[in-house]
Design a protein around this nucleic acid. Structure first.
Ligand SMILES: [Mg+2]
Length: 555
DNA sequence: GACCAAGTAAACAAAG
DNA sequence: GCTTTGTTTACTTGGT
């Protein structure tokens, strides 16, 4: 089951000759256009607005794009954070000129301003080139939460280096950004894809922007399969055509082969220090549909290859420092024309070599390994008492500007009760609770908090919630579901009849919702009978519980 | 300060 | 071997 899910990544389409680099790039462009952001306009979307990127060719090490802005990374280190508290401060300024070389050689690098979004820390994170690994690393320094490819970066990984890959999606306080290296195929992570597919379908249609790669990803997605199953999508002629055209390759089948090939390639790369640098070429419309010939004028990478002296790549730190400090190490080995420096070792001088063919510059780095700045105590200015905006479930977005809210809109007990009562039978699986919350409350969609943990914690701890085996009516009846505890329900109804359910003190969060339900439905669904259940084992001590369970079994 | 409800973080384990 | 689901403990916060 889950193994299929994991193969659902653009990576597994990588070496299929059927798909072109352009298609991968186009996928990345489409994904970029649907990245989520916050409601307020952020400085970056003004300063690095896509429509202002007039230039055809921009020389950069890498780029970081939000849904409507693109920042070209021309320094070895880029800080990301909230530098602006009022967008007007930024509006008054001229947008940054992406054409300018803008090379910063000092260790502070440059900054991307995600302000005034309050969900972003002042120093939220850093993207920095790692001289030892040749990678670009992400370092999260802020405490407002961040995700990499939809996975929360846990607090114990704060201030640690996390290697980035081309196509990775970073989330800082609800602002998603995609990281792109010029010489590499962007690989969209599988988790990301499952999130993006519905939106891709909505925006670009089932023919996936006329991009066969996207079409296949859509076709293989559990989202579309589910839509078909539930009848929301009865007929997909486009997909059928694709199926006919490409009978030879099922993406899943191809996946198998590709992983093998990929492994081989990796090894090869290790020994062969052959690196590339690229000029990033932009077009005015980065997501124009691909023409049938797949000649999309998408963002395009013109890569120039060049051989590096073997083995200078992963040398011990000390050696590397001395080697870098001598400019010659990087001087073109051969006498080829305007040869840019390999991207793996981005250096100010290299960019200069590109721009003005005489290298000069010197400047270079002081070569101590760059240590991420210490976290200077995050801002605790705004969190005195937070009044949570209440929300009611049902349709769409009930949750108003839940922006920088640090707490769920309602107590978890209330929310879970809502989820349970939203079903006909008053029984719901954990994953459906998640879906309910995501569907009905924006907070859960944008937060980086580990709210699923809180949900599970609440379910476990709160005696109002009871776990019962899923009924095996519909064949696939494994697992457990949650409902309102029998006794709890009975107690509540007693109170209700006597008219004092409303002033219950102990589990007000749950009762509050039960009360609402009573007023509208006049009843609370009772958990169905789950036959032969060994009397509740609710022991703190699990070893003891096990003992009892064993006894029961022996009977 | 004691107490409580609620929430966060995380360790751990069983199930799938 | 991985993710999901569930249980539990420790600790924090805000309110009474
Ligand atoms: Mg419970």
């Amino acid at each position: 089951m889950s193994s299929i899910q994991n193969k659902f990544s653009s990576e597994h389409y990588l070496n299929n000759p059927k798909y072109t680099l352009e298609q991968f790039n186009n996928l990345a462009s489409c994904v970029t256009s649907i990245l989520s952001s916050v409601d307020v306009e952020i400085a970056a979307s003004y300063q690095y607005c896509n429509s202002k990127n007039k230039s055809k060719e921009i020389k950069a090490f890498a780029k970081l794009s939000g849904n409507n802005w693109t920042y070209f990374i021309k320094t070895l280190k880029v800080s990301i954070g909230r530098n602006t508290d009022k967008i007007d401060d930024v509006r008054g300024m001229a947008a940054f000129d992406t054409d300018a070389p803008n090379i910063t050689t000092d260790l502070n690098g440059s900054t991307i301003d995600l302000g005034p979004a309050k969900t972003v820390s002042r120093k939220h994170g850093i993207i920095e080139f790692n001289r030892e690994t040749g990678n670009w690393d992400l370092i999260i320094t802020g405490r407002n939460g961040a995700k990499l490819n939809y996975k929360k970066i846990k607090t114990h990984n704060l201030n640690k280096r996390i290697p980035l890959s081309c196509g990775d999606v970073i989330d800082m306080g609800g602002i998603q950004m995609i990281f792109i290296l010029p010489d590499q195929m962007p690989i969209i992570n599988s988790t990301c894809l499952t999130h993006f597919i519905p939106k891709l379908v909505t925006i670009y249609g089932l023919n996936g922007n006329n991009n066969p790669l996207i079409q296949d990803l859509i076709k293989e997605s559990s989202y579309v399969k589910e839509q078909i199953k539930t009848g929301h999508l009865q007929n997909i002629p486009v997909l059928d055509n694709i199926l006919l055209e490409n009978q030879r390759f099922s993406p899943i089948e191809v996946a198998e082969k590709i992983t093998e090939i990929k492994n081989e390639d990796d090894q090869e790369l290790d020994s062969k220090a052959d690196e590339t640098i690229a000029l990033i070429t932009t077009s005015t419309d980065p997501i124009a549909p691909l023409s049938p010939e797949h000649k999309g004028n998408v963002l395009e990478y013109n890569t120039l290859k060049r051989n590096l002296p073997v083995g200078t790549d992963r040398l011990p730190k000390k050696f590397q420092i001395s080697s870098i400090s001598s400019d010659k190490q990087y001087g073109p080995k051969s006498t080829q024309v305007t040869e840019p420096q390999p991207i793996v070792r981005p250096e100010a001088s290299s960019l200069h070599t590109v721009t003005d063919s005489n290298k000069s510059n010197s400047q270079s780095f002081s070569l101590q390994t760059v240590i991420p700045p210490l976290q200077p105590r995050s801002e605790s200015l705004n969190n005195k008492k937070e009044i949570r905006k209440e929300g009611t479930p049902s349709d769409g977005d009930n949750d108003q500007t839940a922006k920088a809210q640090s707490k769920a809109p309602l107590p978890y007990g209330t929310l879970i009760t809502q989820a349970i009562l939203s079903t006909e039978v008053g029984v719901i699986s954990l994953s459906d609770i998640y879906e309910f919350l995501l569907k009905n409350y924006e907070y859960f969609r944008i937060t980086t908090a580990d709210w699923q943990n809180s949900v599970r914690h609440t379910l476990s701890l709160n005696s109002a919630f009871q776990k019962i085996p899923k009924k095996k009516i519909s064949s696939k009846g494994k697992g457990m579901v949650w409902c309102i505890d029998r006794e709890y329900r009975a107690e509540f109804l007693k109170k209700w009849e006597k008219g004092y359910a409303n002033k219950s003190k102990k589990n007000a969060a749950v009762d509050k919702q039960l009360l609402i339900h009573m007023s509208t439905h006049k009843f609370i669904p009772e958990p169905y009978d789950n036959e032969i259940r060994p009397h509740e084992i609710r022991t703190q001590d699990m070893s003891q519980a096990k003992g009892i369970a064993d006894e029961v079994q022996q009977q």
